[in-house]
C-alpha cells in the first residue's frame, strides 16, 4: 500500500494541485467579480471617454494624468484547461475572464484615483496589457497579465 502511494505520488500531487486550483480559483473569481460589479455601480457617475473631448475656455481648473493597474494570475486548473483547449482550438474562456477582470480592475482603480482628486470626467483613456512573470517569454501559455489604464482627469472650476 505504502509502495503504491509512493509510486503514484506525482499523480497525487498533480491532482491535488488541480483540485486546489479549481476550488480556490473559482471562489476568488466569483468574489472578484462581485466586488468589480459593486464598485462599477459606485463609480458610474464619473464618465470615462476614449475620445479627447474639447472644453470651453474657463471651465477647466486642472488636468492630471491618472493611472490604475492590476496584475492578475490564473489558477492551476484553468491553466490546464487552456493547454487542453490549445489542442482543439476555440474560445479559451479561462483567459477571457482573466483579461476581463484585469482590465476592469485597472479601469476601476484609475476612476477611483480620478474621483479622489475631484475630477468631473476622464478623457483619452488608454488600455495597455502585458504578460508578466515566469511565463512571459513562453508563447504557449500565459501565467499572469498586467493591465494598465491611464487617462487625463479633468477638474472643473467651481461655479
Amino acid at each position: 500500500m505504502a509502495d503504491l502511494i509512493l509510486q503514484s505520488l506525482d499523480l497525487i500531487i498533480f491532482l491535488s494541485l488541480v483540485i486546489l486550483g479549481y476550488i480556490s480559483g473559482s471562489m476568488a473569481e466569483k468574489k472578484h467579480y462581485r466586488s468589480i460589479i459593486q464598485r462599477e455601480k459606485e463609480l458610474l457617475k464619473l464618465p470615462v471617454l476614449t475620445a479627447e473631448g474639447s472644453f470651453r475656455a474657463g471651465l477647466v481648473k486642472e488636468s492630471v494624468l491618472v493611472t490604475g493597474s492590476a496584475v492578475i494570475s490564473i489558477d492551476y486548473f484553468k491553466r490546464l484547461m487552456a493547454v487542453l483547449r490549445n489542442l482543439f482550438g476555440g474560445r479559451v474562456k479561462a483567459y477571457e475572464s482573466l483579461l476581463d477582470r484585469a482590465r476592469r480592475e485597472a479601469i476601476l482603480r484609475m476612476k477611483a484615483e480620478a474621483k479622489s482628486r475631484g475630477a468631473a470626467i476622464v478623457v483619452n483613456m488608454r488600455l495597455e496589457t502585458a504578460a508578466i512573470g515566469k511565463n512571459a517569454d513562453r508563447k504557449r501559455q500565459l501565467g499572469s497579465v498586467e493591465a494598465v489604464a491611464y487617462g487625463t482627469a479633468v477638474i472643473y472650476n467651481p461655479r
Partner: peptide
C-alpha cells in the same frame, strides 16, 4: 509568493505595487 498565487489564482498584489512604483519612477 507569486509562484504560490500562480497555483490558486487571484491578484498578485506584490507585482501590482512593484509595477505601480516603477511606472511612477519612469514618469
Amino acid at each position: 509568493m507569486a509562484g504560490l498565487k500562480n497555483l490558486i489564482g487571484g491578484e498578485l498584489k506584490g507585482y501590482t505595487e512593484l509595477l505601480q512604483e516603477s511606472r511612477e519612477e519612469a514618469t
